[in-house]
Design a protein around this nucleic acid. Structure first.
Lengths: 128, 128, 128, 128
DNA sequence: GTGGTCTAGACCACC
DNA sequence: GTGGTCTAGACCACT
């Protein structure tokens, strides 16, 4: 499914969270699709199940997946009501990054075209 | 100059770096202006000088300030050649954030207008 | 009759107990009325009959329903002698919750008016 | 500080959370007071530090304590803005309990006098 | 010394 | 078989 980077200084569970989030966001994992069980994932990454457990629990708290005991874990279907706080955080992060890029004299057109590209790719998927 | 947030779980030196960077980016600290000495800053924040030292060293490596022994540290004047790696990192971060916002159905117009606002504010300062 | 919430991390039988209790307490299920059989309930919720069985057995032990073999389960008519232990437990729980609300500076008038409302609603039902 | 009940079927960390919360709510632990370190608590209860860690982390997420790396954990000073969600949850729980008590014919006067007692005790402490 | 991360291996409740 | 809890013991970054 993906690989870990042991040179990365962040905790393993952070990497796992990031990779899974990316799969969900990019649409590789569809809403309500089952994600690998804690043990399956632990085996395929050859790390301890507790580390996966922690990553999954965090993702559940953040609203990306949900767990059903004795059934497995699944991708949360997107819901506009959820994660308003998260949206605010993302906006603040974007502001900081954009300020830094502006300071470096990156032309804003470059940024905007990048955004257009990401959004139009997403539109393309919807049509599928 | 600024305050530390002890509830933030990041290392203190990360916070210091972030705050100083923000001051530089926003133009509060001008190019070649002297930043407070390690001791001054340590005293005003009542933390260990080693922590400030580490923050300054990182900022120097990232190209935001330069140190002159026995004189102090100063804001690096902007230079196109500096920090091409940093730019790439920022772009990757932006991509990740934008993907997540797209996943959350934030309209791209909202993002773009936000960017316009930040850039036009910066233009305004230049004229000063 | 009711729906299960698979996102709830409590065991399913706990949810079933809670919902049935609510139906009894609110008067939707009257004293000596028959509650759905284990099989009926299992079918309508599409879960394993063992899970329903466990919920019913617990409710019987707690004094909310009684079972007659080959006939089904029925709502226990209210009886002052029953459940003195349960009352004590509820009082302890109330104490804990009220302490927490007091800590949060919720005015006691708000609590009391809430209690009045619940009791007066119950009185209204009795008259029916 | 307190003792664990190994006959209790709930996870140990839940018991620890409950006991600590009670100490905070009752005012035994004052705002900004330091709570025992993870290791101290683990030793005094003779359980594994990881279990304490989990309890403390949960309490931090719920807003009762805050942790500062290399310093310790401390009681969060009460803040009206925090935990509005928690308040709503508590209110729903109270409603359920009161309904059940009403069903058992507990006179509402008994409930109200209990609430008065808890609140007046809290007022007494404030004057101290 | 503090909070935080990780492993290896065990056991439990649930379905 | 699944998610969740717990232990014992280790190591890390930070102050």
């Amino acid at each position: 499914m993906f690989q870990l980077d042991y040179l990365d200084h962040r905790p393993l569970y952070e990497q796992i969270k990031e990779k899974l989030k990316a799969l969900i966001i990019s649409g590789v994992l569809k809403p309500n699709e089952r994600v690998p069980s804690v043990r399956e994932m632990a085996q395929s990454l050859t790390i301890n199940p507790n580390t996966i457990q922690k990553a999954y629990k965090d993702l559940e708290l953040e609203g990306y997946i949900y767990a059903i005991r004795a059934k497995g874990s699944f991708v949360t279907p997107f819901n506009d009501k959820v994660n308003q706080a998260r949206r605010g955080d993302l906006m603040l992060e974007i502001d900081k990054l954009v300020s830094e890029l502006a300071y470096m004299n990156i032309p804003k057109e470059q940024l905007i075209s990048r955004i257009e590209a990401i959004y139009s790719k997403k539109e393309g998927e919807k049509i599928d």
